[in-house]
Amino acid sequence: MIEVHDLTIRYDDKAVFRAESALFEEGKISAVIGRNGSGKSTLLKALSGQKMYSGSVKIDGKECAELRPMERARKVAYLPQILKSANMDVRTLAEHGRYPYHGSFRRPTEEDRACVEKALMITGMKALEEKNLGQLSGGERQRAYLALVIAQNSSMILLDEPTSFLDHMYREDFFAILQELKKAGKGIVMVCHDLEQSFAYSDRIFLMEDGVLHSGMTAAGLSGEEDLLRRNFGVVLKPSEDSGSLYPFVMKR
């Protein structure tokens, strides 16, 4: 669980991000939406301890900035938006997910191997485990990196625009995996640009507006905030009346 209170992030003494309070829980998918440059990625970096902040970010009751990096990585996994195509195979990549548990000096245990195996199975990358990252398509590479964070076995997973480079099929596959992780009790916080998918798959939606985080709402609750949606996205989201519609909420002018 991640609790945020009076969080402020500054660049050159100017506050670029503020959040009064927010709660990201385990067993739930939380989406962070907002316009480009509104501070969504900055929020995820602060939650994963990669950005200096004032205020409080508590991970399982402990202040994030006071946790040792390895301890923090055992509680929170973070996947940035841009993923490198490093010269290594999929299994090796997933094995790196166990680094917070054995570091540089200890050998991987049976538990480490089991976690890697499970991560490869959940993401469907078992068949491609010997493939080099450079040989994979964009969607496969995204799933390979997801295997890395699943192998990390942390209770919270932070994903920065995980589906932005994927086509529709891959996106649906990806969200299906996220649903599996949610069922397994993992808390997922993701920055997402696709409003319909965010509304369809998230339990809570946090809207970022000019560096200010609005408290989390359900999809139904946020769809009622028409002014807020129109101000930020120029559209509103209405419950779909068409039974053939892909998503429960659809965008309208």
């Binding site: 929170v76 996994a77 993923l83 490093a86 540089s104």
Partner: peptide, 23 residues
């Protein structure tokens, strides 16, 4: 030789490596 695994992590980019607990 002992710290070689951290080199592998850095291949994934600073943000991923940092997310895995590497300073």
């Amino acid at each position: 030789v002992l710290t070689a695994p951290s080199l592998d992590l850095m291949l994934l980019g600073d943000e991923v490596a940092s997310g895995l607990g590497l300073n």
